[in-house]
Amino acid sequence: MPRFYSVLLVLCLSGCYVDPYTHAPTPAPTDWYHAGWEDAMAGQPLRSNLVLAHLHNDDKVDRKAWLKGYARGQDRICDSDFLYLLGLSGKRFPASCETVPAATSLQSAWQKGIDAGMRDGTMR
C-alpha cells in the first residue's frame, strides 16, 4: 500500500511541472477603434490617454482611432428610444451620452422611461 501512495505522489507532482523554456504568447496590438466603440457602448465617459494605456496595457495609444470608435458607439447607444428602454429597466443614463449635442433631450427620454417604470412597476 505505501508503494501505491508513493507512485501516486510522483504522478501528482509531475503534473505540476512547468517547462521553463516555454514562451508566453505575445499579446496582439490593441484595436483602438474597437476599444473606443466598446467604451461608448458600455456608457463610459471619455478617457485620457494615460487611463487608456493603463486599461489596455499598451503605451501606444491611437487617440484618433479610439475617438472615432467612441463616436460610432455614441451614435449607436445615444438613441432616444434605446435610452427610454434603459430608463424603463432602471439602468443609469450612460456617461458616454452626456457629451453629445442632444444630451438634454436624450436625458429627458431616459427620464420618461424611469418615470414609466416606477409608475408601472416594471423597473427591476
Rank of each mutant, 00 (worst) to 15 (best):
T22Q: 14
H34I: 03
E38V: 06
P101L: 07
R72S: 15
G43W: 05
V7M: 13
G87N: 08
K68W: 04
A109C: 09
P20V: 12
C78F: 06
Y33L: 11
S96E: 04
R76F: 04
L67G: 01
Y21S: 10
E38R: 10
P27F: 08
S6K: 07
M1D: 13
W66V: 05
C16R: 06
Y70G: 03
Q44W: 04
G36I: 09
W32F: 09
A71Y: 06
A53F: 04
H23V: 07
L13R: 01
L52V: 04
A42M: 06
A103Y: 12
R47Y: 02
A102H: 11
T26Q: 14
G90M: 11
P20K: 08
G43P: 06
K60R: 14
I77F: 03
Q74R: 12
I77V: 13
A103H: 15
D58N: 15
S89T: 08
R47K: 15
K91Y: 11
G69I: 06
G117C: 09
V10Q: 02
H54V: 03
D62T: 01
A24R: 12
R119M: 11
P27D: 12
G121P: 09
N57A: 14
P29R: 13
L106F: 04
L9N: 01
P45Y: 07
T26R: 12
G73E: 07
K91T: 03
D75I: 01
D120G: 10
S108P: 00
A116I: 00
A116M: 07
T122W: 10
C97E: 10
L9M: 10
A116E: 13
D31T: 03
R3V: 04
D81Y: 07
P94K: 06
A53P: 02
A109T: 04
S108V: 02
G69W: 11
C97I: 10
D120F: 10
G113T: 04
L13P: 01
L9F: 10
W66M: 04
P2T: 02
Q107F: 12
L85P: 00
V10I: 14
P2D: 10
D39I: 00
D79P: 03
A53H: 04
G87L: 07
D115R: 06
D115N: 12
R72K: 13
R92A: 12
D79T: 01
T30Y: 02
A103G: 03
P25Y: 02
L8Q: 11
S14D: 01
S48P: 03
M41L: 15
P27A: 13
